[in-house]
Design a protein around this nucleic acid. Structure first.
Lengths: 331, 331
DNA sequence: AACCAGATGGCAACCGCTTGCCGTCAGGTT
DNA sequence: AACCTGACGGCAAGCGGTTGCCATCTGGTT
């Protein structure tokens, strides 16, 4: 039989469909003997409950959607991996959506899925706060690498991390830094900038910002040129991709890294360890971010979890020192 | 209203539910005037058809599942990206499953989803032929980077590509090559090996194989050592990750690349251009593979497409020459 | 004026599963 | 021996749509 239903099983076992249903979902509700018979018949026919039919009644789909602002960025793989892992562990299905850096696509896709998933994990969402709040009022939402009061989130502790970055650079003698900003509507970009600036102020050194830049290798050229005009001795790029592009451009222009200028990135992507010079970068347990976000979401989807105050998980970062940072030029 | 249904819309528009349903799915079946009224009411209430309820009746879910044998490998992200893109273009939902290199997980997950998706695209499936055939008998299936008669597939033309690899190496004076094999149950590994060997024979040069290896950077050490024992002057690694690991190990052992030995990989992942020396590799339009696979799948899910002979799409590869290959040592 | 075809809308069954409610029956009470 | 209780199974009404079939209404034919 192609797709045996509960009716087929009931017929085969000689019981009512309700009994079959209960044999699966409320085992205590049927006698051991009957249950046995039903399960045997089900196994025989290769019956598998149809999750959609189930969802139709229960409203629970056993599915979560993960929306990624830009799937091109290898950094997100880690998040996706963690999310997939956690979802699978609870036999949840993971739906993947790429927003292609477009808030409109992001919003539309979420609305399309709103009635077919139990909740959303949003990675570095580019949506304005109001939209997020509206979505969160329809379905459970967990943010990754973004924060918004009232909505649970999992974030790497960038305030801490940025402080470490500045300390690292200060100890190398740098007194003038520049941040190459990420996209205008990126919460992360705003957070990094403010954390860097605060840390720099604390050390009494100069910190400026140029940008925004789309955080891709291809934008590194423009970003590097922008950075050079500031005469800063250390460049903090919005992420590793941009940093890699910057390093390439600097090499092209004959600027030595780290002798003439230091470069840092964020995310600690796989390639950052392989490029030349290897990249000093602020990393963290990204897989863990994905895992934790889905875990919180599943928790919210469970009746008893609903009421708790929205968790705001802060995961530690780690500053990975590599070849792209060094002592400030003595100039 | 939280989730208005067709009933709410019908009430608001003053028509029967069947009319509402038809206004959406069979517009010609209702008068323009009525249709207008219904759509207005629907818009007013923020009605969105519930895809599950729809699937329950129609059996079509507007969802495809993509199963990846190992999501850790950055190479697959290109495939995923292409698949996601194509699915979204047709308003299909993409479900992502990571098989973690385990045939059992792969099989179980597929079975779990069989009644909730319209079909599967399987990337580098590790399942035995029989399993694939059985799954294909339940649901449309498209293979990526794997072939099996009777099941549609999209594959980069590795026979052609391997020939180019050998020609490249032969022209550099290499007469003794070694292939560092991928996983035992990888169709791609078998295909590459056979294509490389055939090409080598055609040129009258020696080609051997060591392995299998799990294609990760961490396995590069063992793989490199294995390769060195063969005294081959060129190493063709199963993929770029392994190749990168090999290069690292060779550097550690003081073997110069490409002066002492040449190294090649497959996939042309992002990092292969950044490592030192940069990696000569066989690439191709991976995004296109993902796109094409989903496209074929959607086609199969359409009534009229069913009968055609299963397409077997062969996409071109491109040999990307970089710093890791050079003239054979004159020894 | 009687007749007919096509257009349009409604009724109700159905997709596969869940669950509130009721009936039956076995075993234990008094 | 009459009675009560809890365990267990079945009936049937949904969950939110879709669609075959029928009723009605319109305008056009002859």
């Amino acid at each position: 039989m192609a797709h045996p239903t509960i009716y087929d099983v009931a017929a085969a076992a000689g019981v009512a469909t309700s009994t079959v249903s209960r044999a699966f979902s409320t085992p205590t509700r049927v006698s051991a003997h009957t249950r046995e018979r039903v399960l045997a018949a089900a196994a025989e026919l290769g019956y598998r409950p149809n999750p959609h039919a189930r969802a139709l009644f229960s409203g629970r789909h056993h599915t979560v959607a993960m929306v990624v602002s830009d799937i091109t960025n290898p950094h997100y793989f880690e998040l996706i991996r963690g999310a997939e892992l956690r979802a699978k562990a609870s036999e949840y299905t993971l739906v993947l959506v790429n927003a292609e850096e477009s808030p409109r696509i992001e919003y539309d896709q979420i609305q399309r899925l709103v009635s077919s998933v139990d909740g959303f994990v949003l990675a570095a969402s580019r949506l304005p706060d109001e939209n997020l709040e509206q979505i969160a009022s329809q379905r459970p939402v967990v943010l990754m690498n973004r924060e918004l009061p009232g909505i649970p989130s999992v974030v790497l502790d960038h305030v801490q991390g940025c402080r470490q970055i500045v300390e690292h650079l200060v100890s190398l003698g740098h007194r003038h830094l520049v941040y190459l900003a990420g996209p205008r509507n990126s919460w992360m970009a705003a957070t990094r900038w403010s954390a860097l600036r605060t840390a720099a102020e604390g050390h009494g050194i100069r910190m400026e910002r140029v940008g925004p830049f789309t955080p891709k290798v291809s934008q590194g050229g423009a970003a590097a040129d922008g950075a050079l005009t500031t005469n800063a001795t250390a460049i903090v790029a919005h992420n590793d991709l941009l940093a890699i592009g910057v390093v390439q451009r600097l090499a092209q222009r004959g600027v030595r890294v780290p002798e003439d200028v230091s470069v840092l990135g964020f995310d600690n992507i796989f390639a950052s360890d392989l490029c030349t010079p290897s990249l000093t970068t602020l990393g963290g347990a990204h897989v863990e971010v994905g895992r934790a976000a889905v875990e919180i979401l599943l928790d919210m989807a469970t009746p008893n979890g609903k009421t708790r105050t929205p968790p705001r998980v802060l995961l530690p970062t780690e500053l990975v020192l590599r070849g792209s940072t060094g002592a400030a030029p003595s100039a």
